[in-house]
Design a protein around this nucleic acid. Structure first.
Ligand SMILES: [Mn+2]
Ligand SMILES: [Mn+2]
Ligand SMILES: [Zn+2]
Ligand SMILES: [Zn+2]
Lengths: 142, 142
DNA sequence: TTACAAATAAGAATTATTACTATATAGTTT
DNA sequence: AAACTATATAGTAATAATTCTTATTTGTAA
């Protein structure tokens, strides 16, 4: 109980600090995310919130999740949300992705090639690929 | 000239080997990909091909790119083509992605945390994030 | 309490992906 | 060379994901 109140206050403060209004929708979306372990999509959050706020709009969930990213309370899962791309280079290499112009640039790095399976992945998981995702700005965009 | 002929033959052989017909559309799509460095999306390939084959359908490009992946001549760029997901865990960690049920599982690995910037990325690139994404099958799916 | 900038709901528009089906054709058989 | 047939294609529709528009409501500061 006490924790929930403190948390609400912390969220309140964070919003004030950024000049954002503390709306019931925002609080509900933040709380739906807060202890979530499932890395939900926009629609997953929308479906969940709708149970308590039947009139909430998808767009509000959409905008609010982006707002929460902007203020650093949640993060977009890296490597998701981009359209499918194809590569004729089937050899071992890695990619740099420019988050502004969406350019994908090949690079070669032996350290990355040699990465071993993560030690903390529990048995039972079958690993098919292992990839370093490097995101940032290309020279044209920075 | 000689190279182009050999290449066409190599593609021809690969198709025969897999029982696939060598259609002009397939060849055009393969050739559009072959020396491409831009990691094109389906639509980028479609727009390019349309200049030579004004009547080609988007669906043909779509299916053919998947076919080329199946026979190993191109690869989908890993980590693209999934819907956007969000994460309340803003600390340093990594993700396992189940390619079957789309579950995303956190894991922690100091070796991965310590990865340095790729040495082969030219100066001028501004790196914003660097993260290892492991894909495979979770215990429920394997 | 009032004023007003910011946020919301509702729905439309846009873009991305996948599915369907009648027709055409590559590769084979005659 | 002509006929056959399984596969591939064009054209289009359906579905899913993302982003935008607008009228209305609401949180906050004065
Ligand atoms: Mn590449
Ligand atoms: Mn996570
Ligand atoms: Zn760029
Ligand atoms: Zn799974």
């Amino acid at each position: 109980m006490k924790r929930l109140l403190e948390e609400k206050d912390a969220f309140h403060d964070k919003c004030r600090e950024r000049g954002l209004k503390l709306t019931p929708q925002r609080l509900a979306i933040y709380e739906a995310m807060r202890y979530s372990k499932e890395h939900p999509s926009i629609d997953m959050v929308y479906q969940k919130i709708k149970k308590k706020f039947p009139r909430i709009s998808f767009d509000t969930v959409y905008r609010t999740l982006i707002t929460l990213c902007d203020i650093g309370l949640v993060k977009p899962v890296e490597g998701y949300g981009y359209t499918r791309r194809f590569d004729p280079n089937t050899g071992q290499h890695h990619h740099f992705h420019c988050v502004k112009c969406q350019k994908i640039v090949d690079f070669y790095d032996q350290t990355y090639d040699r990465l071993t399976a993560p030690s903390k992945i529990a048995p039972g998981y079958k690993i098919l690929s292992k990839k370093v995702v490097v995101e940032g700005l290309c020279p044209d965009c920075s």
